[in-house]
Design a protein around this nucleic acid. Structure first.
Lengths: 291, 291
DNA sequence: TAGTGGTCTAGACCACTTC
DNA sequence: AAGTGGTCTAGACCACTAA
């Protein structure tokens, strides 16, 4: 370990003292990381700016470049910086979060032209890219296949595991940047022959999946959502182009008709830095849920 | 780079070939990580078991220990393993998740003995440790202080930033393990003199914060919650005793009376691996929220 | 207290990417 | 095309902690 006495900013002669059993002022990668963290937080390094290059930091702290790299690595794992070749270690700018509220499912977005209000369509389009219920031109990947239901899907639909279900997978982008994936499952008997499972993997109609279901008499009435978070798998990291230290949020959505028939089961994987979920509800009287 | 030809499992003579410009079968830490990942997923290494020691892995892959350490490091950052001194690199067991539903706020938990049903109290106790609305013996840290409202809190209460508000901070544990922190804010005029801000930082009464508010005529009626996720700050990591690669979920809760008066603003920081949020709602007709 | 993982060095070489 | 960060090695030593 190195004990360093001297002036950090100056360039005069410095005293370097090699010691062992040093418990007083050990400077390790964790301490360096902490110092950089504070400098980022306090605005010494601003978003989109770069930290000094690794060699310079090494010289400044009087440590090996490897030690600096470990420090920077942990900052990257926290999502604070993005080391970029040839450019430097850039301080990450926190993106604006999309607020996902219950209103994104509003009936006027997919109901068969209830009032014919053009404003509704406009509003829907504006919010479309993140709603997950409407098709959008920016959806690049969209595939529909008949698959065997896994345990969760089978449980949800109350069918046998392995029974065939339609899987409709989408990768949603916002301005070229992938934001989330959304995979919906449907009972074949519910959607066979509809736009939802058309050969040409494309739009599911202007009014989206809910619209198609509604046209077939399966009118979405209520939804149960569950939300979790974890670190992405390498696959998720690649398809969503996630940077280091960015978690994903997992959405599980069950959509029912008023008869409590499940008509869609959906799973979403969202880049956590881009989304905030909001819910508003009345406080229930009893503990048992009211459905 | 090393190109390795030979039998992975045997211990016979092996051919090691040092090459440069190798683009065919480069074995780097990422590839090693990927292989270990698959072996963990496929059950070669089961939860609570340990991977081979780093030296052994290094020998097996014919790379330096440092390379193995980088591979293990990335697995740790994904939350898959926990390198533990003297013990080895143990495969992490995914803990059971606590499902947080709206019913945790049910009135029968805090209403002034509406029906006198003993079952209600029992149910509340069973769920108590994660509800965040009732006090529990396992709450170790509980502090109440008068602080200056930050921007968000001030906005929520519609007061000036810097105005005094009561801050009630709790660290919630489940069976000694920290699960989340919960920090509530109240208007002084609402809670002055109540149990909530009593000198003795302790229980806020058997019926919790909502009970105290209700007793003062401020009856919780509806709630707005927002949920986000990100990597923890080092402080959060320490207080929640989070392991590598574990994100946190941030809860923001606003509790209103039926007059739309805000009576509590709360922020929660939850260990992501321990919680899943669930919401059930009717699909709204219009896009504007109904409040 | 023995043995595991953790930290650090010094230097060579690679590869990407922005300029 | 120059220069940044990225990967890897080989070896010394540290420090924690489970046995």
């Amino acid at each position: 370990m190195y004990l360093y006495f001297g002036d950090d900013s100056g360039d005069g002669p410095e005293t370097l003292l090699r010691t062992t059993r040093c418990t007083v002022a050990a400077i390790g990668y964790a301490e360096i990381a902490e110092e950089l963290r504070e400098e980022i937080a306090s605005g010494v390094y601003k978003p989109d700016e770069t930290l000094p290059k690794q060699k310079e930091l090494a010289a400044h702290y009087h440590v090996n470049v490897g030690t600096i790299r470990r420090a920077i690595n942990s900052l990257a794992a926290e999502g604070l910086v993005d080391p970029t070749r040839r450019k430097g270690t850039v301080v990450r700018r926190q993106p604006r979060m999309k607020r996902l509220g219950v209103e994104r499912y509003a009936k006027e977005r997919w109901a068969p032209d209830a009032g014919g209000s053009p404003a509704a369509t406009v509003g829907a389009a504006a919010d479309r890219e993140a709603s997950g219920t409407e098709w959008d031109p920016t959806h690049q990947t969209q595939s529909v296949t008949l698959v065997q239901a896994d345990r969760t899907v089978a449980d949800a639909f109350d069918i046998d595991p392995g029974a065939p279900v339609y899987e409709r997978a989408r990768l949603v982008r916002n301005d070229e940047r992938p934001t989330h994936t959304l995979t919906s499952y449907y009972l074949p008997s519910d959607v066979e022959g509809s736009l939802l499972v058309a050969d040409t993997a494309g739009p599911a109609g202007e009014r989206g999946g809910f619209g198609v279901l509604a046209d077939r008499g399966l009118i979405p009435d209520h939804i149960a959502e569950t939300i979790k978070a974890r670190m992405p798998t390498p696959t998720e990291k690649k398809t969503l182009k996630l940077r280091e230290g960015e978690p994903v949020m997992l959405l599980e959505r069950r959509t029912y008709t008023s008869n409590d028939k499940l008509i869609e089961f959906a799973r979403g994987v969202h880049a956590a830095s881009l989304f905030a979920w909001t819910y508003q509800f009345k406080i229930p009287d009893k503990i048992e849920r009211s459905g």
